[in-house]
Design a protein around this nucleic acid. Structure first.
Lengths: 254, 254
DNA sequence: CCCTTTATAGTCAGAGTGACTATAAAGAAG
DNA sequence: CTTCTTTATAGTCACTCTGACTATAAAGGG
């Protein structure tokens, strides 16, 4: 703060940036990653789908604005929304990202379990879940924000216990594995996944009582809760993306 | 963008947020992590030290503003500055973080090799390097920004090849190890570090010719350049912080 | 009753790592 | 010049973790 600092104190003497928050709200449903989108009712990008978001109010932080928007868009009470994972992603500041004026957007990623009532009762009547892969071209630079959000979530599953945020309060290891497979787009070996999760201290803790979950075919599974840990050490690395070029050590015959 | 959206197009009808960038510029010097600070010449926090930074201009992105500030504060040409690693950290938006007005700050972390001429020729005459641990209470919320930046850099050393950004174009494995030990504040086993780095594809590549570096005592070391890789897979995990007691693996939220 | 499906338990080889020892090549000390 | 210290490099060994795989248990559907 040493250069180009305006000396006055009148806010209107400064460049009037508008500051918004944009939310990439994810959930795992039907073995697919879904993201909450809203349809724009006005120009620019009228009729296009966009990430939910809104302006940061004069007396709130961006974190508070994001939490408020999350409550409005999901239609859930602020108390319920307070339990969801919400983290700042990064800030998008291209001068031309909004054709109307100079808007910088602080992007957030939110992780929700698959809720019974997904569509919100807020003012966003046209909000709905979209498969994260099938979301068409979004308004503004929201395609990039969404891609960055997916990258971040996928990376954080490796070295944090974040996956439980996609699950209900009690869940099976199969459901937890489904989260990893859905976000990463890979298949994991079930016994190995089980061994890794159960050996990680504080990742999950077993639920006492009748250890069964019915509903599908097959043997009932034991239920678990999220443990107290947030970091996963050593990490649960996703299989490296099979590089097409390098070392193919074929040809050595024993 | 569905709530609280002003309908007009007059910029002065919006809340006039000021947007700044703040830079945590790191280097490794004398086996200690150093950060570039500037002394404030005006209120608030007159006489206190602060991270260098400045306002985002009307027609530039925050990335461009950060790169421009980095050139100004280091006194290096924009061409030299363009090679340094500079990445966005996160954005700080507490309504009261600046007592004068509403300022949101996009924080960046920059990684520099130990330069022969550290102090810049810009308008920040009072810029100097501080040991990252001995930096006193800084202005604004810069203590928190600095702490977040250190956490982020330390974490990224684990799973990226970022450490080479602290080194000159040609360096020894001992110097690279020094970077890790300094940032993490731990001691690493030299043969094991060597084995890990040399086996990681694309991390470093040997320099042809006379493989020596003199200066200190001991056997001359071979020189290496940074390889093309940016990710480190599998990661180079820092030793876990010897948990003193119960099962509460502490978590960071980068 | 068999077959399919899912959950759980276990085995085994190989990669990776931490701890450690040994040797080589320089300058400093005597 | 010899010896010591310092740093670089090479290698060993045991242990852990992981990927791939096999086996058994417990449900529902034909």
């Amino acid at each position: 703060m040493s250069t180009g600092v305006p000396e006055g104190y009148d806010p209107h003497a400064f460049w009037p940036f508008a500051v918004t928050v944009d939310l990439a709200v994810f959930t795992v449903r039907d073995a697919a990653l879904h993201v909450l989108l809203v349809e724009r009712g006005q120009d620019p990008f009228r009729g296009r789908w966009a990430l939910p978001g809104g302006f940061v109010l004069p007396r709130e932080s961006a974190d508070e604005a994001a939490r408020r928007e999350l409550a409005e868009e999901t239609g859930l009470g602020p108390d319920a929304v307070g339990a969801f994972h919400l983290e700042q992603l990064r800030t998008y500041t291209d001068p031309d990202r909004d054709p109307r004026m100079r808007v910088v957007s602080v992007a957030y990623a939110a992780l929700l379990p698959d809720l019974p009532e997904p569509r919100g009762g807020g003012d966003a009547a046209s909000a709905r879940w979209w498969g994260a892969g099938s979301a068409g071209p979004l308004a503004f630079d929201h395609d990039r924000i969404l891609a960055d959000a997916r990258d971040r979530i996928g990376a954080k599953l490796e070295y944090t216990c974040l996956a439980t945020e996609f699950c209900p309060a009690e869940f099976t290891l199969g459901e937890l594995q489904q989260v990893y497979e859905t976000v990463w787009g890979v298949e994991l070996d079930r016994p190995n996944f089980r061994r890794k999760v159960l050996n990680a201290p504080g990742f999950v803790q077993p639920v006492e009582g009748p250890p069964r979950r019915t509903g599908g075919r097959g043997k009932p599974a034991a239920l678990y809760r999220a443990g107290g840990a947030t970091a996963l050490h050593p990490p649960l690395l996703r299989p490296p993306p099979t590089e097409p070029s390098l070392s193919r050590p074929e040809g050595r015959t024993p």
